[in-house]
Design a protein around this nucleic acid. Structure first.
Lengths: 152, 152
DNA sequence: CCCTTTCGTCAGGGTGCCTGTCTTGTGTGG
DNA sequence: CCACACAAGACAGGCACCCTGACGAAAGGG
């Protein structure tokens, strides 16, 4: 039996900026994955985004994916293997290098992009309805300015 | 040997709102953990925040921590055990219930709060310097308005 | 005093990440 | 042209984190 407990009151202390930034992202991500599940992709989880979001149309090497996702190629290879078993990507030989293979989204994999685009549009529409177009533009502009100066 | 690859160009497509929200949070979190490491706490990792951030001063039961962090009590117990071995928390008997134990931050654990507060203040100061006080207030207000309407 | 619920734990499983090592293929310099 | 360093990926092994299931012990209401 599961012992997961219901969430009652998350002790919402003085809302700091970190939480204000994280929550909309978290809620959006949750909705995306709920939608994936509803549309027949219940096995897609967050780490799989580290593969799918970095695939080029013509296919991409595991090493390149690893570099883009900032992880080791071993870890990336494992994610790719998992997604391959689930039918979302396939490995095809790289014609230009017989050591290498190209990871490509299958038709099933491409369905994810369609769904993701829909959800993103939907969420942005909701937020715009809530805040109004002017404030959304403001918010985006401020976030862009903030992001422009970020360096670890 | 590690095969982690350097990150070159993250294919920064049309910056969408999700990335704009996530990046400042991610960069801040990275800095926090780098600072933990520099100050003698290299073993503290992100999931440990799910324990430390929910501890009350007098101690808190594992079940309550699990509820607050939205995970099973088994998983929470594991995190607590790990932090206990590292010396950041201790389990003491709950005087009001002989089944229960209270998880409490040790002096070493409380050092983390000091560091965290410093880093947060530091980051907010940097952002304020970059955007100016007025825009920071605007940003915070917009994020609060956005967060106020979030529900799943 | 049962009976149910709750607290914490043990047991077992899967995913996601790591380091280290190896094979195979590439390409470069002598 | 060939030896050799190097790049791509696979294989092995390990740990952290999260889950489900099941349990003994204590609490607490009828």
């Amino acid at each position: 039996m599961s012992t997961r407990l219901p969430h009652t009151s998350a002790r919402t202390r003085p809302e700091n900026l970190a939480i204000l930034l994280r929550e909309p992202f978290r809620v959006g991500t949750e909705r995306l994955h709920r939608r994936f599940a509803e549309r027949g992709h219940p096995d897609i989880r967050a780490p799989h985004g580290n593969v799918m979001q970095f695939l080029d149309d013509g296919g991409t090497r595991v090493s390149v994916l690893a570099e883009r996702a900032q992880m080791t190629k071993q870890s990336m290879a494992e994610l790719v293997t998992h997604l391959e078993r689930l039918g979302y990507v396939e490995r095809v030989p790289d014609p230009s290098d017989r050591r290498a293979k190209l990871v490509r989204a299958t038709p099933r994999g491409r369905e994810l992009y369609v769904i993701a685009r829909e959800v993103v549009a939907e969420i942005e529409a909701e937020w715009t309805q809530r805040l109004g177009k002017a404030k959304m533009r403001q918010l985006r502009a401020l976030l862009e300015e903030l992001n422009a100066g970020l360096e670890p």
